[in-house]
Nucleic acid binder design. Structure first.
Lengths: 211, 211
DNA sequence: CCCTGTGAATTTGTTCACAGCT
DNA sequence: AGCTGTGAACAAATTCACAGGG
């Protein structure tokens, strides 16, 4: 599976997958590219290109078979393999993440949380043990963790990120308001809430921009 | 100020602004494009193009003057005008947002929260009054709110979003795992945590992709 | 028909390369 | 020398437009 695939495409594929799951639960079995496009807010051509990328082919008369796309997507996105996730920073946001991932999405689950506050360490929150951040590398190794959520204050984000990488983390979602500097090969997804709001504020003013 | 400006550029400008603020607090007065680029994880050419877009011009010998860029950025991003923000959904994530924006960034502040749970309504959390979601439109009008965070369960996200728009909201940050369908002219920024993690999981596997 | 798959064209975004300045 | 500003080249992403098929 060496095909070059863009970040945007991967995002859309994840969105499609979620939509198709829902439709499947609701009993639907087939749909057309333009229908999926409408639900994902994407053009029909885009949907077709994206599905081409995962190697799935629909039929012209019945469109796409939901079960079959889901299978292709699962194979392509490698969703079967269970991947353990760590969370660093059990503040409000960290707890929101724990709560959000509790139970569901069994193949991506938060198996360990970390915080520096002794008030929090030792406890179990939403089914997840909270360790002292000092044990970071050890626990990551023990639990075979290679992914992480970083939800710590910006001042310590870089230091914690370095330790995550030292502990074997290969990809992380960064909520801290800092651009991290990490070795190539470590994938960082920025989730910058302040920037998101500023961006919305910027575009919300000006009438009808479709930027 | 009719110049077309891309979403990516606006994001980067917000990041620059934050970095420059920090440098300014630390007493630095000038920097070069490649320095800012390093801090923002962006190429020097990109920085220069972006700053060109806001109409700021540096000098070749001293580089950019931090105070002056900040002034240009403030003018361009329209940061002086105070804009009130609403929050719908006072769960874990909602509280994280309230906490995050408490006090700081005085020009973008959460002035009203909403929830359906009577346990939460009527209380003041992190300095923000929590109203019953039934009063949504009224309070938005009263408080002159045109921006919002949407942090409600996916099943109700579309309905709430429609009401936000009816109440005068022109832009929102959506944390719910649904693609919203809103009239043109309303700007939506998707903050999809599950997709972010799935994306990271996808790329974290494959060694050194720079996608 | 109305679908899918896909070359070709287009638009958008980024980097290269260098002129001009001090 | 080393910087900025920017045309030109390049790369990426998206849309157009249409062939092919039941």
């Amino acid at each position: 599976m060496a095909m070059r695939i863009s970040e945007r495409t991967v995002e859309r594929l994840c969105v499609y997958r979620r939509i198709l799951f829902r439709l499947q639960r609701e009993g639907q079995t087939h749909l057309y590219s333009h229908q999926l496009g409408k639900l994902a807010r994407v053009s029909a051509e885009q949907v077709r290109r994206d599905l081409m990328a995962v190697g799935y082919t629909g039929s012209a008369q019945r469109g796409y078979e939901i079960e079959a796309i889901l299978a292709s997507l699962a194979a392509f996105l490698d969703v079967e393999r269970v991947q353990n996730v760590a969370l660093v920073g059990v503040g409000n946001l960290g707890r929101a993440l724990l709560h959000h991932f509790k139970g569901r999405r069994p193949t991506l689950r938060i198996v360990a949380a970390f915080d520096a506050d002794p008030e929090k360490t030792g406890r179990v929150i939403d089914g997840c043990r909270c360790h002292d951040v000092g044990e970071l590398e050890t626990v990551l190794r023990e639990q075979d963790v290679h992914l992480a959520f970083l939800a710590v204050p910006p001042e310590v984000a870089q230091a914690v990120a370095d330790r995550l990488v030292a502990g074997g983390v290969r990809g992380l979602v960064n909520f801290a308001a800092v651009r991290l500097s990490l070795p190539a090969g470590v994938f960082v997804e920025e989730m910058d809430i302040s920037v998101a709001l500023e961006k919305v504020a910027f575009y919300a003013g000006r009438g009808s921009e479709a930027p």
